[in-house]
Design a protein around this nucleic acid. Structure first.
Length: 374
DNA sequence: TTCCTGAAGA
DNA sequence: TCTTCAGGAA
C-alpha cells in the first residue's frame, strides 16, 4: 500500500521526530518513569483529555491509589469521587475492574504481555501500545489523534480516520514508521510532535523540521486533513431535580442503567420529554406525599433552566429546593444523606455546579437549614 | 453509537 | 451567549 515510500525515508522521518522531541518535549510527571501502573493511570486519564485538564488528577489519583492493590481494594465511590469532574466516568470504573483482574489473574503484578494488557477493561489498541512501549520497550506503534493528524498531513492520506478502513491504513503506516530499536522514544516523539508542532489549528509550519517534505504544506491542504466523516447529532433531555431539605438531611439517588453518569449520585430526578412545571412533576411522581404526608411543604428556590452540554446530549435542568417538616426522610431506592456529608458522594459537573450555589446560600441554625436564594 | 468536560473562537 | 474543537473505548 505504501510501496512508494522508501525505508530510508521512514527512518529519516523517525529520527527527525525523535531529535525534535529531545529538544521540545514537555517535562511531565509520567515521563521518564517505568512503573507500568503509573503509565497506565496517566494514559487512561489522558484518553480524550488534554494534559492541562488531566495533570492535577494524575497527581491526586496516584497519591490516593499508589498501586494496583490499593485501587483494586478501594470502594468504587472513592474512585469515582477522585475522578469527579474529569468526565467519561466509565474510565474510572474500568480502571478499577482492570485492577481487580490484575490482582486475580496476574498476582497483582501489571502484565507485560501486549495481549494481556489489551484484554484489560478500558484498554484498547492505542493504550496497549502506549503501555507496552513506554514501560516495556516493546515494538508497538501508537495511533492516537496526534498521530492520525501528523500522518494524514505529512503523507497526504485522506481516508477518514473514523472509518474502519482508514484506521487500518493509518495503523499500518504507523507500524512501518516505528523505530523498533527505541519504540518508547519514537512513540512519545510522534505524539508530542502532533500535540505541540502539528497542531489541529494553526500548526507551526514555520519552525517545522519536516516542512519541505510535507504533503499538506505543499498542497495547501493543512486545514483539510485529517478527514472525519461522522458527525454526532445531539438529543435534548429535560431533567427536574428535587432537592429535599428535612432537618439536617436530604435525599440522593445513585444513577444506574446504561446511561450517562453511571454510578454517580444525584438529587431525585424526574425526566420528561419537555420542561415542565412543579405541578406537572407532582402529577408524575408522588414523592411529596410519600415524604411529607400531610405536613406542609415549601419550595424555597427554583433554579432557572440550566443547559448542560455533553458531546451528544443537551441536558436542560431545573432544580427545586423543597423544604418539609416530615419526621423522617425516607423513600424507597433513595439514600438519606446528611447535608454536611453531601461532598463525600461522587457527582456530575451539573450537580456539582448546582451544589456550589446551593451551599453558598445555605445557612444552618439550631439544626435547621435555611436556603435563601439570591 | 454512546460515553464527558472545558477552552477557545465566533 | 452560543458553537466548535480536542481527545479512545466498548
Amino acid at each position: 500500500m505504501f510501496t512508494m515510500i522508501e525505508n530510508d525515508d521512514l527512518q529519516h522521518i523517525s529520527s527527525v521526530l525523535t531529535d525534535w522531541y529531545k529538544k521540545n518535549k514537555r517535562d511531565l510527571p509520567w515521563r521518564n518513569i517505568h512503573d507500568p501502573y503509573r503509565i497506565w493511570i496517566s494514559e487512561i486519564i489522558l484518553q480524550q483529555t488534554r494534559v492541562a485538564q488531566g495533570y492535577d488528577y494524575y497527581l491526586k489519583f496516584t497519591q490516593q491509589f499508589p498501586d494496583v492493590q490499593s485501587l483494586a481494594n478501594a470502594p468504587e465511590d472513592e474512585v469515582l469521587k477522585c475522578w469527579q469532574g474529569l468526565g467519561y466516568y466509565s474510565r474510572a470504573r474500568n480502571l478499577q475492574a482492570a485492577a481487580k483482574r490484575i490482582m486475580a489473574q496476574h498476582n497483582g503484578k501489571f502484565p507485560s504481555n501486549y495481549d494481556d494488557i489489551l484484554a484489560l477493561k478500558g484498554i484498547g489498541e492505542y493504550t496497549a501500545a502506549a503501555i507496552s512501549s513506554f514501560a516495556f520497550k516493546q515494538p508497538y506503534a501508537v495511533v492516537d489523534g496526534n498521530v492520525f493528524r501528523f500522518l494524514s498531513r505529512y503523507f497526504g492520506i485522506d481516508s477518514p480516520i473514523d472509518s474502519g478502513a482508514g484506521k487500518k491504513q493509518f495503523a499500518k503506516l504507523a507500524g512501518l514508521l516505528l523505530d523498533k530499536l527505541q519504540p518508547d522514544l519514537h512513540n512519545q516523539a510522534i505524539m508530542e510532535f502532533g500535540a505541540l508542532q502539528c497542531t489541529p489549528t494553526g500548526p507551526d509550519c514555520m519552525n517545522c523540521p519536516l516542512e519541505t517534505s510535507c504533503f499538506a504544506k505543499e498542497q495547501g491542504k493543512i486545514s483539510d486533513l485529517p478527514v472525519k466523516e461522522k458527525k454526532t447529532r445531539v438529543t435534548h433531555r429535560f431533567f427536574h431535580h428535587l432537592v429535599f431539605i428535612c432537618g439536617e438531611e436530604t435525599l440522593l439517588s445513585k444513577r444506574s442503567d446504561k446511561d450517562i453518569w453511571q454510578n454517580l449520585y444525584e438529587f431525585p430526578l424526574y425526566e420528561s420529554t419537555k420542561l415542565c412545571s412543579f405541578e406537572e412533576i407532582l402529577m408524575e411522581k408522588n414523592w411529596i406525599s410519600e415524604i411529607a404526608g400531610l405536613h406542609p411543604i415549601h419550595i424555597s428556590y427554583q433554579s432557572k433552566e440550566i443547559k448542560h452540554i455533553l458531546s451528544h446530549q443537551i441536558i436542560h435542568a431545573v432544580f427545586y429546593v423543597v423544604n418539609t417538616e416530615s419526621t423522617a426522610l425516607q423513600l424507597p431506592h433513595f439514600t438519606p444523606v446528611k447535608i454536611e456529608h453531601l461532598n463525600k458522594y461522587p457527582i456530575s459537573r451539573l450537580t456539582e455546579k448546582f451544589l456550589k450555589k446551593f451551599s453558598e446560600n445555605l445557612s444552618c441554625s439550631k439544626n435547621k437549614y435555611i436556603f435563601t436564594a439570591n
